[in-house]
């Protein structure tokens, strides 16, 4: 085992089933990418059109950003796959921790001062 760490392989050990699975996943990832592009367009149009009140537009584009976050993490970074329990645990706790961080900073150095 130890002697096969730095040698390339002549072929892939993927079974037909695994190849099919990879191709299906690739297709899903392309769809996720199309969604991300569409969401980006939507966010830029929402701001550029200047038809809705700023308060609504801002909450709307932040909502779109969270959808993109979800697509990146779960589809591009494979968090939805099996064997990603610990990855999910750490990522979700990081995200949960960052919400009070942001709120506290806005309140302490923003709202109080200006």
């Amino acid at each position: 085992m130890a002697d096969h760490l730095s040698e390339p392989f002549k072929k892939s050990a993927m079974t037909n089933e695994e190849i099919m699975k990879t191709q299906r996943e690739m297709r899903i990832q392309f769809i996720a990418f199309a969604f991300m592009i569409a969401l980006t367009f939507l966010a830029f149009i929402a701001v550029g059109a200047e038809v809705a009140p700023p308060g609504f537009v801002i909450s709307f584009i932040i909502f779109l950003a969270f959808i993109q976050l979800f697509l990146q993490l779960y589809y591009f970074m494979h968090l939805k796959d099996k064997d990603h329990g610990w990855a999910n645990t750490f990522m979700v706790s990081g995200l949960v921790l960052s919400i009070p961080t942001i709120v506290a900073l806005i309140l302490i150095i923003g709202v109080v001062k200006y």
Binding site: M91, G94, L95, L97, S98, I99, T101, I102, V103, A104, L105, I106, L107, I108, I109, G110, V111, K113
Partner: peptide
């Protein structure tokens, strides 16, 4: 993620 959260929070403030 947490580190960037502090930078985002600072900017928003």
């Amino acid at each position: 993620v947490t580190m960037f959260a502090t930078f985002f929070g600072t900017y928003l403030g």
